[in-house]
């Protein structure tokens, strides 16, 4: 594996499979134990550098690092020197001087983790950059699908919603196709990027036509504000055409699962009874996130010497 995890597009099949296998082994090693902690990364320092609020992702990374006995520093952009105009580079050099072995970065600018990787010697983990990628989310989604359905090869995954602005969608497109899944993007044309035709995926504007042929449906968060920029006329119309409700869920094959990266807009892209149904993996995804992030930190940091 490379020194950094910047994008899912970087992972080949062997690397991606190793992350998932390692996460499964970690799950197994920790299953049923009272002591959920491993000494693996004792003496290593992991910095969570979050320029955007994302409590759930930050906590997941924090828990993953702590379960591997790393020292964790949370560096939130708010209330720090960053909010006083310190540049990303100066922050990077500061963290470097403090001896950070890994920097987990969340940033509103696409490519910020790539920039950071040029300025530090430690490993950089992309925890979501702008509308680019969120590779650990895709890894935990792949892990969840494999765990539930037993495989990824040939699994039909529908990713539904605001693909244009979604880093989760991008990472899943690259990772799932690398792992052999067949991905179909479902969205109104306004919420698909120009150039999507070059991606190794199917594209549909019709959710009802896709559902009967989907083994997993991943619903993306759709922000209601998008309608102000005319991406769609109204929340109601969006929900009617692209929302997953009980009627639509019934069209899915028997074993199919329903996924959501969270946080959900209940009633917008997903109905409450769907989110809480037995098909839903939404809670499971959160738990898997910790194992997958442990695997990533172990694989990036376990063998590194500074």
């Amino acid at each position: 594996m490379k020194r950094h995890l910047l994008e899912a597009a970087d992972l080949d099949r062997a690397d991606a499979t190793l992350v998932l296998d390692t996460a499964a082994q970690i799950d197994q090693a920790l299953a049923g134990r009272e002591v959920k902690k491993l000494p693996t990364l004792r003496g290593r320092t992991v910095v969570n550098l979050f320029y955007e609020d994302s409590t759930r992702t930050r906590i997941s990374f924090e828990l993953a690092a702590k379960r591997l006995s790393a020292d964790v520093i949370n560096f939130s952009a708010k209330g720090s020197s960053v909010s006083k105009g310190e540049s990303l580079k100066d922050t990077a050099l500061t963290l470097e001087a403090m001896g950070a072995d890994a920097i987990v970065v969340r940033h509103s600018a696409s490519g910020a983790p790539h920039r950071l990787a040029n300025w530090v010697r430690g490993s950089v983990v992309n925890a979501g950059d702008g509308t680019h990628e969120h590779p650990t989310q895709a890894l935990l989604d792949a892990y969840t699908i494999r765990h539930r359905l037993g495989r990824l090869d040939g699994v039909r995954v529908a990713i539904v919603g605001d693909v244009l602005h979604s880093r989760v969608a991008r990472s899943n497109v690259w990772l799932l196709t690398t792992l052999g899944a067949e991905v179909t993007l479902v969205a109104p044309p306004t919420l698909l990027p120009v150039g999507v035709g070059s991606w190794p995926v199917g594209v549909s504007y019709d959710l009802d036509a896709v559902l009967p042929k989907a083994d997993a449906v991943m619903m993306l968060r759709v922000q209601a504000e998008r309608m102000n920029a005319s991406f769609f006329p109204s929340a109601r119309e969006y929900s009617r055409r692209y929302g997953l409700d009980a009627r639509r869920m019934a069209a899915l094959p028997d074993e199919a699962i329903v996924m959501h990266p969270g946080p959900m807009n209940r009633g917008m892209e997903i109905a409450a009874d769907v989110a809480d149904s037995v098909r839903s993996t939404i809670v499971e995804q959160v738990g898997n996130g910790v194992s997958v992030r442990m695997a990533v930190l172990y694989l990036l940091l376990g063998g590194s010497t500074r």
């Binding site: 594996m1 190793l18 296998d21 390692t22 082994q25 970690i26 197994q28 090693a29 491993l38 000494p39 693996t40 591997l68 172990y298 694989l299 376990g302 063998g303 590194s304 010497t305």
Partner: peptide
């Protein structure tokens, strides 16, 4: 019992795939 995550020589030996703990 897989001991990889308990080793104190990971830095020297490099990352290795984990084995089963059963």
């Amino acid at each position: 019992v897989d001991i990889t995550l308990y080793r104190d020589d990971l830095r020297m030996r490099g990352v290795r795939a984990l084995e089963d703990t059963v």
